[in-house]
């Protein structure tokens, strides 16, 4: 499909299938986050396309929000650039509608709940889900929406064929993990550490045990994020998780070197995802 044509209707289950296909090909899936509108809308689209071409199996498109309390300095600063341009979620969705026909991998929106909840009026979850599906997005990740409050969104998303990824953390109790496993579709987002987004020099030792606890509860793929920034870390995570999520490091590359730098880093991370999986 070429740019300009309407996006393909959403096919349910695309997110989980993309992760599983990577596994069948002998690697962990690579999931890349970039915010819409950084450094501007067109360049962010070019960076996302570059990531997909360079080996990302899934894309997370961040919709910048004024109060991103789950994000560290790198992503906060990038999102502020986009907000200062005056881009709205409507503009971000329009960019996604241009992006999705041009890439072969599924893309999810990652944003904060108030933007989804407020889209087109008060408490209009259905409105956002409809437009996200229309833009060709395959699912959503809302880091400030815990599974316990997630029922209304899960219902709206399901009605439009969107996957709903929920997050688990090392400190999550068993009952919480049960709820996450039950409510999530696509994959479970396992936080590698207690903290916010941002590149870290060393990954903690908490991720593998969390993945093991989740495996006992769900047959959905489990992907690990927070702090992964290079090939070696990607390989480390790929040795025990189904997918590796990278955000801040790619955002930094986008800011410093645009689509070329993104492609270079993503190719390197994808190599790590193969190496780690092979070492299992």
């Amino acid at each position: 499909m070429s740019a300009g044509q309407p996006a393909a209707p959403t096919v349910p289950g695309r997110v989980g299938r993309a992760v599983r296909e990577a596994g069948a090909q002998g690697r962990a899936a690579l999931i890349v986050y970039l915010p819409a509108g950084y450094p501007d809308l067109d360049t962010s689209q070019a960076c996302l396309e570059a990531a997909a071409e360079a080996g990302a199996d899934l894309l997370e498109v961040g919709f910048p929000y004024s109060d991103p309390l789950m994000d560290g300095p790198t992503i906060q600063a990038a999102c502020q650039v986009a907000l200062d341009h005056g881009y709205t979620p409507h503009d971000d969705l329009a960019m996604c509608a241009r992006l999705t026909p041009r890439i072969a991998v599924p893309a999810l929106v990652m944003t904060y709940y108030n933007l989804v909840w407020h889209y087109g009026g008060v408490d209009r979850l259905d409105h956002f889900a409809a437009d996200a599906a229309q833009a060709g997005l395959a699912g959503a990740i809302l880091p400030d929406l815990p599974a316990s409050e997630g029922e209304p969104w899960a219902r709206a998303a399901a009605a439009h064929g969107l996957d709903t990824v929920f997050l688990a953390a090392p400190a999550s109790r068993d009952a919480t993990l049960d709820a996450v496993a039950q409510r999530t579709t696509g994959f479970v987002y396992a936080s590698s550490t207690m903290g916010v987004t941002g590149a870290r020099t060393a990954l903690g030792s908490e991720a593998a045990p969390l993945v093991a606890r989740l495996r006992a509860r769900t047959s959905d793929p489990i992907c690990v994020g927070l702090g992964v920034s290079n090939r070696a870390q990607a390989a480390e995570v790929a040795s025990f998780a189904d997918g590796v999520i990278v955000g801040s490091a790619v955002v930094r590359a986008a800011g410093e070197g645009g689509p070329e730098a993104v492609a270079e880093l993503v190719a390197d991370l994808a190599a790590g995802c193969r190496e780690g999986h092979a070492a299992r």
Binding site: P143, P146, F166, A168, A169, S172, T176, S191
Partner: peptide, 12 residues
């Protein structure tokens, strides 16, 4: 009201 926070804080 309610609790719209990252899951990491649920336990605390």
């Amino acid at each position: 009201g309610g609790r719209y926070v990252p899951e990491a804080l649920t336990g605390a």
